[in-house]
Design a protein around this nucleic acid. Structure first.
Length: 420
RNA sequence: GUGAGUGUAGCCCAGCCGGUCUAAGGCGCCAGGUUGUGGCCCUGGAGAGCGUGGGUUCAAAUCCCACCACUCACCCCA
């Protein structure tokens, strides 16, 4: 027997209402903020990701699904959503549109990771990007949008953590300062951190080991080493978040795993944080468009993990509306009745009503049993008697009331009945 | 990539100091209990040879090994 590849899941019919719910809420929020949908390919030229996400990152170093296709092109299944959107922005000359350009997407994301709950090799993200504006009010708006999205889903007890990691003017100085500090503590660092010291100094702050955390807590803070522009930007963002009454906590150890981030970085997570807790995160990437060959263009965005959102919807027992199902079940006894049933089903569907026409030749009892378990509101019973009389028995499944209706009236009777 | 736990029918699971296990039960599914009628109830039926592959043994779902998958933690992030 085959099974789904490791770290992938089938999203079965029973789960689909969660997915539709999340998508619908996301689209609703995007409409509120003027974001338009974009869909990009599931794979891109590998260089797009190594260039943007960064050579030293875990994603590029060990998590990408990369292969050569039959035309000898180096291809990578997208491990994140921002770079493809930026590529599309450039490729289609969106810098000629009114700025900022506001885009959202639903995308499947591929990373070769060790799977566990809330962490898959193929997962789905909803994300937004606002490209072409550096004003901190846009940062606040993007965070507000993410915040409103989670609120509209009904998720409670979320926390927003925030930081600014500076820009290419001030960050090198900061990293030098940070490195000097860490070099002094080198003997106390865990093995991972010892290698990070050279390879990716910023990520030292992110280490979860208690011993390293103590060092990180006392480390120089990026927010204290911002250049005047970045400091003003960060102050502006906080002011606007206060204007929007969005609660936040600054965590100077928050750095993100992708190299393209500048200035603002943020994450949103449930307060009862478990292992894979972050349900959304994002930040500014003011240099990325330029890095990809465009003119200097500031931008900010965020992404959310749909599987993790659904995990939390379930954890918080949030009721999600069911998907619509057919209201009418047509039971047929005999060949003449079947033909009548098929015709009736076609008419009802033409009128926009969902119908299940019983197939096969099971007993009436079995057909009604099925109507019941499919939660139909009405069963229409067609047998030889009815066909002969030119009628059908319409049974209200909730009340068990049953009446004979002439075939001519049947359509209007069913369409007018509320069911319950 | 590291460490630990788990793996029996579609689902939940009993059994696991080896031997009537030709593997139990519940849910679900199918059928019957009315000659054309559901949801409750009753009866019956189908459905696994015990994650996969080896090994130990007269004998393994039950012991050992490997692999695979899932879960949890690390790591990483959504």
């Amino acid at each position: 027997m085959y099974q789904a590849p490791r770290g992938t899941i089938d999203i079965l019919p029973d789960e689909q209402n969660y997915w539709r719910y999340v998508e619908q809420k996301a689209a609703g929020v995007c409409r509120l903020y003027g974001y338009q949908r974009i869909d990009t390919p599931a794979f891109e030229e590998t260089g797009l990701f190594t260039r943007s996400v960064g050579q030293g990152t875990d994603i590029v170093e060990k998590e990408m699904y990369t292969f050569k296709d039959k035309g000898d092109n180096l291809i990578t299944l997208r491990p994140e959503g921002t770079a493809p959107v930026c590529r599309a922005y450039l490729e289609h000359g969106m810098s000629n549109l009114p700025q900022p350009v506001k885009l959202f997407y639903f995308a499947d994301i591929f990373r070769y990771e060790r799977p566990q709950a809330g962490r898959l090799r193929q997962h789905h993200q909803f994300g937004c990007e606002a490209i072409g504006e550096s004003d901190p009010s846009l940062d606040a708006e993007v965070i507000d949008m993410a915040w409103r999205f989670f609120a509209s889903l009904g998720l409670r007890n979320l926390s927003l953590v925030l930081n600014s990691i500076g820009c290419r003017q001030c960050r090198p100085d900061y990293i030098r300062t940070l490195k000097d500090y860490y070099v002094k503590h080198a003997p106390e660092l865990c093995p991972d951190c010892s290698t990070r010291l050279e390879r990716n100094t910023l990520r030292l702050l992110d280490c979860k080991k208690p011993s390293c955390q103590k060092i990180a807590d006392a480390a120089p803070r990026s927010a204290d080493h911002l250049c005047p522009d970045c400091a003003a930007h960060f102050a502006g963002l906080q002011k606007y978040l206060q204007t929007l009454a969005i609660p936040y906590a600054i965590n100077h150890r928050l750095v993100r795993g992708l190299d393209y981030y500048t200035r603002t970085v943020f994450e949103i997570q449930p307060e009862d944080a478990g292992g894979q807790s972050t349900i959304g995160g994002g930040g500014r990437y003011d240099d990325l468009i330029e890095e990809l060959g465009g003119r200097p263009t500031p931008a900010i965005g965020f992404a959310t993990g749909i599987e993790r959102i659904i995990l939390n919807l379930k954890k918080q027992s949030i009721a999600v509306p069911p998907l619509p199902i057919p209201r009418v079940y047509i039971a047929c006894l005999g060949e003449a009745a079947r033909e009548a049933g098929i015709r009736l089903g076609a008419d009802l569907r033409k009128a926009g009503t969902g119908v299940i026409v019983a197939a096969g030749s099971r007993s009436l009892k079995a057909q009604l049993r099925q109507a019941n378990s499919l939660a139909a509101q009405f069963a229409v019973i067609l047998g030889e008697e009815e066909v002969r009389a030119g009628t059908a028995a319409v049974r209200n499944m909730a009340t068990s009331e049953q009446q004979a209706v002439s075939l001519g009236e049947l359509l209007s009777v069913i369409l007018n009945e509320q069911g319950d």
